[in-house]
Amino acid sequence: MSAVYGGADQSDILEADPELIASKASETFEKDGPLLVVASGRDTISVASSVKRLAPDHVFTIQIQHPRSHLSRFDLVISPHHDYYLLTPEGKKQIPWFLRGWITPRQPPRRNVVLTLGALHQVDSDALRCAASAWHDELASLCKPLLVVNIGGPIRHCRYGADLAKQLTASLMNVISTCGSVRISFSRRTPKQVSEILVREFRNHPKVYIWDGQDPNPHMGHLAWADAFVITADSVSMLSEACSTGCTWKFAYFHKCLQERGMVRPFTGEENVSFFICIQRNRI
């Protein structure tokens, strides 16, 4: 279960026990004020709402990601904007009416709902400065521009395998002459057939480094030092993090919003990465 409980010292709570958390909140209320309960993900919805029900005046509950129903059970809901996509005219055209209740909130955002463009993450200017320092020795001397390729994995509504790996390999081969360096990272969800194809094609290329999955994870260093990114479309989080420096209707809407803001573009394999980086720097 992905949940964080903060405020008073809750180090003696080993599991997300609603009754125990509510009891602690009541005990410490006079001294410390309301207990802040932050919960993230579907599995935490019942826990956070139970805590609020058991100690309504002694906790302030924040639910990250839309709980799909019972918004009034939480003091604050932080939800990505694409969870409300079906409330838009374009969304209503794409999804049959009898399916909408299953995949999107039925109500428009309430006053206690905060909408974000992408996923919440910890990548900010301070984190990037720390990462730039920590990875300076390994990444600062690489030839520029540095292209980072982050590869996730297929999800229920976004299937891919060897076909994507072959297409991505061909596209990277087309642009690699315009790159100074390329670093490729796989996630734990990346299918073996995908990683094997890319490793086979690029493991001996002098410009390319492929992370082997061993600690330390260079992800934050890549975010701090990369000049450009190629990211598979299955992960809202990876795209959101990269934008701090399309596989389902929700992801398509998320990608569309990013493209309209000039934050991302489709990877065609015809880019001149050096020229593209110059344009981006001039815009900044």
Rank of each mutant, 00 (worst) to 15 (best):
M1A: 10
V4I: 13
G6C: 14
G6A: 12
A8C: 05
D9T: 01
Q10S: 10
Q10K: 07
S11F: 02
E15K: 06
E15V: 15
A16R: 05
P18L: 00
S26L: 12
T28P: 00
K31Q: 12
D32G: 07
G41N: 12
G41T: 03
I45Y: 10
V47Q: 08
V47H: 09
A55E: 13
P56L: 15
D57W: 06
F60K: 01
T61D: 10
I64E: 08
Q65H: 04
H66K: 06
P67T: 02
L71A: 13
L71S: 05
L76W: 14
L76F: 14
S79F: 03
H81Y: 06
H81F: 05
H81D: 14
Y84L: 09
L87M: 12
P89Q: 05
P89R: 03
P89E: 12
E90P: 10
E90Q: 13
K93M: 15
R100V: 15
P105L: 10
Q107K: 04
P108L: 00
P108I: 02
P109E: 09
P109H: 04
N112T: 01
V113H: 02
V113E: 06
V114R: 07
L117M: 06
A119N: 02
L120M: 11
Q122T: 14
D126E: 14
A127N: 11
R129P: 13
S133Y: 11
S133D: 14
D137K: 12
D137S: 13
A140K: 03
A140N: 09
S141C: 12
L146H: 08
V148H: 01
V149W: 05
P154I: 11
I155F: 02
R156N: 13
K166Y: 07
K166Q: 07
K166N: 07
Q167G: 13
L168W: 00
A170K: 06
S171A: 14
L172W: 02
S177D: 15
S177T: 12
T178W: 05
C179A: 11
G180R: 00
V182P: 02
R183M: 15
I184N: 06
R188V: 15
T190S: 15
Q193K: 07
S195N: 05
E201Q: 09
F202N: 03
H205R: 01
V208L: 08
G213M: 11
D215T: 10
G221N: 07
H222I: 05
L223V: 03
A224P: 02
A228F: 01
E241P: 09
E241T: 07
S244E: 14
T245A: 12
F251S: 04
Y253N: 04
F254Q: 04
K256E: 13
L258K: 03
M263I: 03
G269V: 14
E271D: 08
V273S: 03
F276S: 00
I279N: 04
N282K: 05
R283S: 13
I284M: 09
